[in-house]
């Protein structure tokens, strides 16, 4: 083999193509940084105290805030968790500890499919399920929509983390006279708890930004929404409505709301990763 192998043309292709892949990565990263940077700049400059403490001001007036939307989002997420987390946990336990054969396969596959249902379709579903019978939009309907959307991820991540618990721990429990269910609740779940919590927090962060299913379930509200059966405002819907409005004051509010929403999500995501790291550290001494 001569020293000039591979031929020059192939060497050039090599360098050019490898450089191109690097360029692609750079491009994606710069888009990411631009988005985050722009949001940070626009959002932070539009923030003030009133944003958190006041409800929206009438059109044309400056000032006002989105306190009702922040409260609305928190209420929606609480309700969604109350629905999605228990079902996801139970289903995850079932898949990892009890189900076998076709039953496990069917549930797993259906869960993955449900996870892929476009959020706007989920909105339609909950509209026909909750809003039509009740004849009006409500926090309840929005919470149900987000709750159903939470189930697939809560279920699959719970299953994955439970599965990762070694068989030796389960046998250790059984050998001490614990029943299967006692082993699950006192050994397997505690051993996987950090992972499960992380999965659920990321799941909450994911649905917190959902907008489409809320448009026709929670709808929106210019004022505070008492109780659970009235339409409610929420951060994502506020961002949408303000962004497509013609008023500059509202655009500023949209940026501020986007900034608050994304910061919230990033904080949740970072905290949950810390929890996972702490769990790993604990279980390895």
């Amino acid at each position: 083999m001569s020293a000039s192998y591979p031929p020059l043309s192939r060497k050039i292709t090599n360098v050019v193509m490898l450089a191109l892949t690097g360029f692609c990565t750079l491009l994606v990263l710069s888009v990411l940084l631009t988005i985050l940077g722009y949001l940070l700049w626009k959002g932070a400059s539009s923030l003030n105290i009133a944003f958190f403490t006041k409800i929206p001001a009438p059109v044309g007036q400056s000032g006002g805030g989105v306190e009702n939307a922040i409260v609305g989002t928190l209420k929606l997420l609480a309700l969604a968790s109350a629905i999605g987390v228990p079902i996801g946990l139970l289903g995850g336990i079932y898949l990892s500890e009890f189900a076998g054969g076709w039953s496990a396969f069917t549930i797993r596959y259906t869960t993955d499919l449900l996870n892929g249902v476009p959020s706007v379709v989920m909105g339609i579903f909950v509209y026909t399920l909750v809003v039509l019978p009740m004849h009006h939009f409500s926090t309840l309907a929005g919470g149900v929509a987000l709750g159903i959307m939470m189930i697939p991820i809560a279920l699959r991540s719970t299953e994955d983390f439970l599965r990762a618990v070694p068989r030796s721990l389960r046998e250790g429990g059984l050998a001490l006279g614990a029943s299967k269910s006692e082993t699950i609740f006192t050994i397997v779940i505690p051993a996987a708890i950090y992972g499960i919590i992380t999965g659920i927090m990321l799941d909450i962060a994911r649905v917190a930004g959902e907008t489409a299913p809320l448009l026709f379930t929670a709808f929106g509200n210019l004022y505070n929404s008492p109780g659970w059966l009235q339409p409610t405002s929420s951060l994502p819907v506020v961002i949408y409505n303000y962004a497509i409005s013609p008023y500059d004051v509202w655009h500023k509010q949209a940026w501020a709301a986007g900034f608050v929403l994304l910061s919230g999500l990033l904080v949740i995501s970072i905290i949950s990763r810390l929890i996972l790291a702490r769990g790993k550290k604990l279980s390895h001494g």
Partner: peptide, 17 residues
């Protein structure tokens, strides 16, 4: 992280940037 950004925020960026 880019995948975790809500759709509505992409819309916001789309309109104004």
């Amino acid at each position: 992280l880019l995948a975790a950004v809500p759709s509505v925020i992409y819309g916001l960026i789309g309109i104004f940037l």
